[in-house]
Design a binder for these strands. Structure first.
Length: 216
DNA sequence: AATCCTATCAACCGCCATGAC
DNA sequence: CGTCATGGCGGTTGATAGGAT
């Protein structure tokens, strides 16, 4: 026995939701709660699969969703959490009230990832890309500071690699810790990000266990 | 004005974890 | 213990808007 199909093979509608469908879904959930997603669409009079309804609700229609641009603080938090949790979008979203995992994932892939790449930082490991390690040690130091302290990302557009060393050095000396501490589920301080966590030689760098699957 | 290119984001797909039976 | 249904997650796609040429 196969899984229940979700989509037009079952005579169910796919693609963008219409305002009428949205209204049906909202009205139904407000009256009855969502209960069982599989039976919801039939009860609500929707030609959609339960999965599609759940996605529409959790990513778009939920009343507590905060829409609009991400604030700098949110961006900073995402970068910091991603360096700890990796692509655990739902875990990151759990620490950003009103934001969905899908929204954060999209924002990461379209904005933050590009900024990090432009700065020569591997968005997966949050370390300077190995192919760029031929840079001057001062430049490398700036990059290390930048991924440890996302505040420096503010200046990414002005930053010119290899040509503004003095300017960068001044910033490096001003910022020694990251401004976003990390808390666990019980709101206990797990880690206060600090650039000193990172060695000068990345060939020797190993992620601490608290930053890997052990924690999650 | 037309065409092409790029960025954005809603939505889908496939897989995995979990719980009920 | 095995099977199945369901929910949830991360990766990917595709439509569309906006900018560049």
């Amino acid at each position: 026995m196969g899984r229940a199909l979700c989509g037009d093979k079952n005579g169910l509608k796919k693609g963008p939701w219409t305002p009428e469908e949205d209204k049906k879904l909202i009205d139904y959930i407000q009256k009855h709660g969502y209960g069982n997603w599989r039976t919801l669409p039939k009860n609500a009079g929707l030609q959609r699969c339960g999965k599609s309804c759940r996605l529409r609700w959790t990513n778009y229609l939920r009343p507590d969703i905060k829409r609009g641009r991400f604030s700098f603080e949110e961006e900073e938090t995402i970068i910091q959490l991603h360096s700890i949790l990796g692509n655990k979008w739902s875990a990151i979203a759990a620490r950003l009230p009103g934001r969905t995992d899908n929204e954060i994932k999209n924002y990461w892939n379209t904005h933050i990832r590009k900024i990090l790449l432009r700065m020569g930082i591997d968005p997966v490991t949050h370390t300077p890309r190995l192919d760029l390690l031929g840079l001057s040690s001062l430049h490398t130091q700036y990059l290390i500071q930048s991924f440890a302290n996302p505040e420096l990302l503010r200046n990414v557009d002005q930053y010119q690699p290899l040509t503004q060393s003095n300017h960068c050095h001044a910033q490096v000396e001003e910022t020694q810790t990251c401004s976003v501490p990390f808390y666990n589920e019980e709101q206990q301080l797990v880690m206060e990000p600090n650039v000193n966590q990172f060695p000068s030689n990345f060939n020797d760098y190993v992620m601490p266990s608290i930053l890997t699957e052990d924690y999650v």
